[in-house]
Each structure stands twice: as structure tokens, then as C-alpha cells.
Design a protein around this nucleic acid. Structure first.
Length: 427
RNA sequence: GUGGGCGUAGCUCAGUUGGUUAGAGCGCCAGGUUGUGGUCCUGGAGGUCGCGGGUUCGACCCCCGUCGCUCACCCCA
């Protein structure tokens, strides 16, 4: 009967983000929003869940993510829905549904859900920001998308990032390659690692990505994708590589780079943070998906995009010692009021209307207590109002960052408070 | 899904071969300072030692289970 109330916690693999950490998120997202705007992308908002088919057809029924990591549920109307495991499929679904004029360039920031055992840099709910550009297969779009990611990493202080690139070819030349690869794997089946000896035929490309020495030895000796591209795909890939070079962005050809989603064609890429020593060191990735719009029932439309994991970006920043906050969330002014009246409310409001960030104390605490809170808040200035100031229609302004313990503080008439504070904060 | 490590105050942790009133630092509150933070001093609040069961005269400590956290494999952001 009298059970104590249960203590709820965030579900496994999810996290609350509180200040001051949350300011890093604000800064990261704000920086990305500004850059995306500069590159001509506008914000798109999508539902957090979709008909499960959007993801099954998009990222591939056989993919690891679709088969065992999706949060699938049935709603009260008996619809089978899934929480989005990544960003691209939903954005392309929205493109197909609304068919906006192309080229259509959109950026997003969204949670993503995957049912996995959490570990460093891997969570059941993580967050991605990214862009998608639909309606062109111009290699310039590939370069632009990759450059945006690159410049973004630079802007948030990451220096030890490597760009790996590869081309999957279009479906025909990739199809031909996969046949060659299959033949090679079949001939060397007994030499594969324990897992892939049984499963290689399900998705032969996955074997390229296997980190075990056995598989690596086999694929090392086998055919690689870049050597089997058709002339068009090869030319496209070369123009992307040249374009990156022209912007001073260093990339490394990684013929084994096979990303986890089946929708990729031609250009694929991944950003690796060398500062992260965990296995989860991919901070972003993406590629071209020239068949995806069709697969989702829309008109044939080329597209390219990338996504980056916010948690991993923050881990990489920490590992690199990139501690600049990107965004200052400390208050300008702290109002201390010991009059027992509502002057603090009025002063705070006036200062806020003037554009200042203002905090204040509550509960009519002692001046000492309020000053302590003011100090902890990080505010630059304290505005003090006690009975004496109230009677004289004045306020006392104190510089909280001064080293001088016995500093002189200034008094100003209360109707000059806003102008004086604006002037002081500007300095 | 598989395996390892760990669960003691809000946080970081100590707790001796099981021995009775469970500690520290930081943080929080109050006072020293009759209006003034950051240093210092004093006091205070705050713990069913994750939860359940077992062994024992006695369990924070040993055993089993369970839940949680964490790391790794797999895969990915």
C-alpha cells in the first residue's frame, strides 16, 4: 500500500543534458545553423517517427540498423511506425511528398534512435545534425556538402579530423563489382572470419568493412570498388576529388569504405576523429543516394548529404582540448534586492528589455546570500537595491569580476540604471 | 545479442582480515561580518551503503539473484 514513489531515471542509453553542458550544444547547433545558412541550406523539420517502410526501403531491409536496431512500434490505429534511426530517409520522404523546386537544400538537427547496447560514443538516443541536397548529381554539390562538414569541424575547433572518401559507383557498375567480389569471396570462403564465412553472401560489401585479419587478408587480395567503376562514375569521382583539392581539403581514398546504409551510390565519405581512441571514432559521414527518392516512391532524383553525431563531436572536442564554449551563457547583470518589494522584478525587466541577460535572487534572502548567488552565476555586474537606495531613488552597481576587494562601487539614479549598465557591459 | 569492471551523501570518493553511533573533500544552508560575493573560520542539513534473498551472534564488507551504470565485441553517429 504505502510504497515509496519510484525513482525514475532516463531510459537506458539516453541522457539528460543540463547546464553548463547544454551551452556546448547550443553553441554547436548555432554554429552549424549559421554555416548551413551560408552554404544555402534552409532548415527542415521532420517527424521523429515514420512508417517503418520509409526506413526499411531507405536504408535497406537487410542492413544491421533495420534488422535489429530499429525502435518499431504499433500505434493505437494499428500503424507500424519506427523512431527515426538516422536523418536522411525522413528528409527524402518529405522531399518526395512535397516535391519542392530543385535543387532543394535542407539542413536538420534531430535525435536518432537505435536499439543497441550503449557504450562510449554510442547511445540509444543520440543526436545528429546534417544537410541534404536533392535534385542534382553535379560533383560540385558533393564537394559543397563535404566542404560544409569540413568547415564546420574547423569552426568548432577540431583539428585532428581525417576525411575518407570512396565511390560505390552507380547500381550497374556496383552490381558488376559485387559479382566479382562474390566470386572472390566464394573462392576464399574457408579463409574468412568465423562470422562472415557463414554470412558473406547476405551482403558481400560488408566483408570489406570487417576488421578481422582473416577477412582483411582475403579482401586485400580481391577486387576493390574504385578499380571497377564505369567511365562516368570514375569521372564523377575524380571531379569530386579535384574539387576538394581545389578547396585545400585533404582526403584519403579508402576503397574499403562501405557505409552502413544500402542507399548510397557513387560518392561516400566518412570523417574520423583521430583524437578519439574508442572504436566509435567516426564523427560524421554521408554520401550520394541517387536512387533513394525513387525507392521511396518519388521521381528519380539525385541527392547527397551528410550527418554528424553531436555527442561524438563533443567527445572529440574534449579529446582535442577544444574547450572554447562557442557561446557565452553567463549573465550580464545580477540584481540583488533586500527591500522586500518588487523593485528587482521591475529593474530586471527593464534591463532585459534593453537586451541584457539578467538573473536575480528570490525568497528575500540576506544580502550576503544574494551576493553569493550573484558571484556563482558568473554575472559581470551586480545591481544592489536596499532600503537606502530605494529611499534615495538610486541603485548601487558593483563589478563582480574586479580583483580589487575594496573596490569603490558607484551609485546611479535608478532612472539611469539601464543606460549605465548598457554602457558598462559594452566595455 | 555476448563478455568484463563497478554500484557508500547532490558530486568525487574513503571505509582496515565481517564487530555495534558509516566518514572526507566539494556543493548546499546559517553564522563569524547590523546591507556587499570571491579567501578564511565555526556550525548545520543531507545516507533504508542500488534492490531482494541467503550465510552469520553480527553484513557496507561474504554468497546468490535482480536492476542500474560503465567499458569492450558486433555495428554505427
Amino acid at each position: 500500500m504505502n510504497e515509496p514513489p519510484a525513482q525514475f531515471r532516463a531510459p537506458v542509453g539516453t541522457h539528460d543534458v543540463l547546464a553548463p553542458q547544454s551551452a556546448l550544444w547550443e553553441g554547436l547547433i548555432g554554429t552549424f545553423a549559421t554555416l548551413a545558412y551560408r552554404y544555402g541550406f534552409s532548415l527542415v523539420l521532420n517527424p521523429l517517427f515514420e512508417d517503418v517502410g520509409v526506413f526499411n526501403r531507405g536504408i535497406g531491409e537487410a542492413s544491421e540498423v533495420a534488422t535489429k536496431e530499429m525502435y518499431v512500434f504499433t500505434d493505437r490505429g494499428n500503424r507500424t511506425l519506427a523512431l527515426r534511426p538516422e536523418g536522411t530517409a525522413s528528409v527524402v520522404r518529405a522531399f518526395v511528398q512535397h516535391q519542392p523546386p530543385t535543387p532543394w537544400k535542407a539542413w536538420y538537427v534531430t535525435p536518432a534512435f537505435r536499439y543497441e547496447r550503449p557504450q562510449a560514443g554510442r547511445y540509444r538516443q543520440h543526436h545528429q545534425l546534417g544537410v541534404e541536397a536533392l535534385g542534382t548529381d553535379d560533383p560540385a554539390a558533393d564537394v559543397e556538402v563535404i566542404a560544409l562538414a569540413w568547415r564546420f569541424y574547423e569552426a568548432i575547433g577540431l583539428r585532428r579530423v581525417r576525411l575518407l572518401v570512396n565511390s560505390m559507383g552507380h547500381d550497374e557498375c556496383r552490381g558488376r563489382y559485387v559479382e566479382l567480389l562474390k566470386a572472390h569471396l566464394a573462392a576464399n570462403e574457408s579463409a574468412l572470419c568465423d562470422e562472415h564465412r557463414e554470412t558473406w553472401s547476405m551482403n558481400p560489401l560488408r566483408v570489406l568493412d570487417c576488421k578481422r585479419a582473416a577477412c582483411r587478408a582475403v579482401t586485400e587480395a580481391g577486387p576493390m570498388l574504385p578499380g571497377h567503376l564505369c567511365a562516368d562514375c570514375r569521372a564523377h569521382f575524380e571531379r569530386v576529388a579535384d574539387g576538394l583539392k581545389g578547396l585545400g581539403i585533404a582526403s584519403t581514398l579508402e576503397p574499403r569504405l562501405v557505409r552502413g546504409f544500402d542507399y548510397y551510390t557513387r560518392t561516400t565519405f566518412e570523417f574520423v576523429a583521430d583524437a578519439l581512441d574508442s572504436a566509435q571514432n567516426a564523427i560524421g559521414g554521408g554520401g550520394r543516394y541517387d536512387k533513394l527518392a525513387e525507392q521511396l516512391g518519388g521521381p528519380a532524383t539525385s541527392g547527397i548529404g551528410f550527418g554528424s553525431g553531436i555527442e561524438r563531436l563533443l567527445l572529440a572536442r574534449e579529446a582535442e582540448g577544444a574547450l572554447e564554449p562557442l557561446l557565452d551563457r553567463t549573465p550580464d547583470v545580477f540584481v540583488v534586492d533586500t527591500t522586500g518589494t518588487d523593485v528587482a522584478t521591475r529593474y530586471a525587466d527593464a534591463l532585459r528589455l534593453a537586451g541584457l541577460a539578467v538573473q536575480r535572487a528570490y525568497d528575500n534572502r540576506s544580502m550576503k546570500a544574494q551576493m553569493k548567488v550573484a558571484d556563482r552565476s558568473g554575472a559581470r555586474f551586480a545591481v544592489l537595491v536596499g532600503p537606502a537606495e530605494l529611499a534615495a531613488a538610486q541603485v548601487t552597481i558593483r563589478d563582480l569580476r574586479s580583483e580589487d576587494h575594496d573596490q569603490t562601487q558607484r551609485s546611479v539614479a535608478h532612472d539611469e540604471l539601464v543606460a549605465t549598465m548598457l554602457d558598462l557591459v559594452k566595455k
